[in-house]
């Protein structure tokens, strides 16, 4: 929970490295970290990977007890089986996702220069399936949740290292994600930043509002409200609905760009998915 010097140095190193790639995203990252350091001086930046449970000791204790028998374990087991199943053309997910698979979550999202769009892990999985002659999975369905849960579990403790390559399209995707984050939506007229920056740490009803830092490290998540494991984009949809906006489609360009922006802000933090949230 408390700031550790070497971690802060490591995070600073990531800041310095990414600064050479593109100044604007690096400035965003530094400003965001400075904001949370000032807002929560007693909480280490890396602790935010636990979301609201980094900010509320009582809720953290309850959450840690849940982690003794985590409800996402079933999804991990199912995902392990799916990972071993051959695709329609006899190839495997390792053939498609790379030799390091299933330890690949740290490579996503990335900017795909071929398509000129942000590539997420979920989209890559479906691309593998379609290329092999299989049907694409529902992005909100149990198979996608299971396989991504297994990959996330195997990728735990890998560091987030999202790059914004020297390509104006990549920077445009990042900026689009940033615009989405700061843009008011819905009848309640809220931007993501209102809950996760302006009011971060406060309560909405009984729930503590988490920091943006670390928002993408722990997905997919078993959400008690959903009674199942689900993806980050389902949470985006839920956020948009909660402010009485019409949610976008999962894996839409805008949601992928938002994921790109948010993931970049978590550079240097470790992956800790899947996770449990209320």
């Amino acid at each position: 929970m408390f700031v550790s010097g070497w971690r802060r140095l490591a995070l600073g190193g990531v800041v310095a490295l990414t600064a050479q790639v593109n100044a604007a995203p690096e400035d965003d990252l530094a400003a965001l970290r400075s904001f949370y350091e000032k807002r929560f001086p007693d909480i280490a930046l890396e602790a935010h990977i636990d979301g609201a449970y980094a900010l509320d000791e009582g809720k953290r204790e309850q959450w840690l007890e849940m982690e003794d028998f985590p409800p996402y374990e079933i999804a991990i087991d199912e995902g392990a089986e799916l990972f071993e199943e051959a695709l329609a053309d006899g190839s495997s997910y390792s053939d498609c996702l790379g030799d390091d698979a299933p330890v690949v979550k740290q490579n996503y999202p990335y900017f795909d220069e071929t398509t000129g769009q942000v590539m997420t892990l979920d989209l890559a999985i479906n691309n593998c399936r379609v290329a092999a002659g299989d049907e694409a999975w529902d992005y909100l369905g149990p198979e996608m949740a299971a396989l991504t849960a297994f990959i996330a579990y195997e990728s735990r403790d890998e560091e987030v290292a999202v790059e914004i390559p020297d390509d104006p399209r990549a920077l445009a995707a990042y900026e689009d994600g940033k615009a989405f984050y700061y843009t008011r939506r819905g009848q309640l007229n809220f931007a993501c930043s209102h809950c996760h920056m302006t009011m971060v740490g406060n309560k909405l009803r009984a729930e503590r509002l988490s920091a943006t830092l670390g928002h993408t490290t722990h997905w997919p998540v078993y959400r008690l409200k959903w009674k199942e494991t689900g993806p980050l984009h389902r949470r985006f949809m839920e956020c948009n609905s909660q402010v009485r906006g019409v949610p976008l489609e999962p894996q839409s360009v805008s949601y992928r760009n938002l994921e790109y922006f948010l993931s970049y802000q978590s550079n240097g933090l470790v992956l800790n998915g899947p996770a449990t949230r209320k």
Binding site: D27, D28, A31, L32, F35, K178, A179, Y182, T183, R184, R185, Q187, N189, A191, S193, M197
Partner: peptide
């Protein structure tokens, strides 16, 4: 009314979001 307000929100937010960016 709500439809027109939502369009107005989109139009005003095309620039307004920039004022919320940290720094």
């Amino acid at each position: 009314l709500t439809a027109e307000k939502s369009v107005a929100q989109a139009q005003s937010e095309a620039e307004a979001w920039k004022g919320r960016v940290l720094g």
